[in-house]
Design a protein around this nucleic acid. Sequence first.
DNA 1: CGCCTCATTGAACTCCGTCAAACCGTGTGG
DNA 2: CCACACGGTTTGACGGAGTTCAATGAGGCG
Lengths: 235, 235
Amino acid sequence: MDARANAADRLVACAGCAMAPLCEAAQPMSGSLSAVECRRRLERGQVLFAAGSRQDSMFAVRAGFLKTLAPAGGSEHVVQFLMPGDVAGLEGFGPRMHAGSAVALEKSEVCEISLRRAQSLSDAFPHVAAHLRRLLGRQLASTQAHAAALAHLSAPQRLAAFLVDCARRWSERGFASDHFRLPMERREIADYLGLTIETVSRLLTEFRARGWISVAGREVRIHDAHALRLCPRQP
Amino acid sequence: MDARANAADRLVACAGCAMAPLCEAAQPMSGSLSAVECRRRLERGQVLFAAGSRQDSMFAVRAGFLKTLAPAGGSEHVVQFLMPGDVAGLEGFGPRMHAGSAVALEKSEVCEISLRRAQSLSDAFPHVAAHLRRLLGRQLASTQAHAAALAHLSAPQRLAAFLVDCARRWSERGFASDHFRLPMERREIADYLGLTIETVSRLLTEFRARGWISVAGREVRIHDAHALRLCPRQP
DNA sequence: CGCCTCATTGAACTCCGTCAAACCGTGTGG
DNA sequence: CCACACGGTTTGACGGAGTTCAATGAGGCG
């Protein structure tokens, strides 16, 4: 069951992977099959890279889920959740050091590409360089949108937007658009949204009572995405 | 007076400009003096680029101050303030369209570099491509840090951190490290920090009452940066 | 089964937003 | 020059959204 799920994830991983152009560019260049130098398997809770550590690689999620954390006044804060096909470690392009860290939410597998490799591929293939810039630009735009949401949206609006966003990203990978699993704890959702676990829990039951969603543990089904999107300041 | 201030800004602009490597790379390549194709003067309130418009340039602030805005549920939200030497428009590398907009806070001047130009310079000079990646990576890291601050810090902590950050960036450009001008309105500070004007105003007087800062209109002097950094949840 | 972590629910509190009024600096026109 | 208007800022009083504290319920695993 778990193995089958991982296999299914892998199927979409390479086709829709954000790193695919790098791998394709690398194929005719060297004997290796792709730009990926090694794959790493991660157990739940295992750290892929830690804040402050030297950055010499970027990563593509091949299977499973991860979270990335940014330092915030001594503590750390969840800044994004990574699905298969997503990329981690781009923010380390700046100071050559990881500003934040990445941790597996469940048994996962990532493809590692060394920065040297990425750099030489970029230098050899302009379209790879452009692709990396696009990736960075997209991630920057989405992080800005997240900051805007934290600053301006009420708690119900934030949670509703989060659920809709999860469904969208999940369906973009070829899965059901109205049914998905939240692989992270409530605590991590709350952290990501700048709320507390209690508020998240209360709002989920609120949404369920209104018939907008079904929640069973970490399984979520969306019944009325429209209502979630229009979620007013106080539901 | 205004002219003198602008002149002073320009002096640091090129030496410390984030775009400098592009200009230096372009010099021996073509007859032009730099990578900059045109300079644009902006009046207070003038829009440099708008969300949804086609992106074909990036910009370096040469003089004055700007704000960048991200769309947030119909409205817009201030995601950063740009000082001379800062760069705007990188988030458009993704969708080839400006996700957000940029507006001048006061009479300003920016250097415009077309994306085509940036691209060809990147392809010709690997170190320019690496520099662009660094810029994007840095901006990504700082936007993540801002999101973390919005999610986790109390109102006083956010404002204190903002003041300290302004002082740091201002001093990095060679100016006084304890004395600067806030060129934006209270409304824009509040927007950036996810607060209201009233809260910002109240906290500024609070900080002043504690002797941590002096405030006279938009002029700010920091007396106790240490206290600001340690600013507890309720001051 | 017993223990642990995670999740849910309830009640009291509080920070901060909302509403409202006063204040101030600047420009404008009589 | 003064009166006035106007946008931005400050200050006060109040209420509510969301946190905090606390207790209970529900799975997961040895």
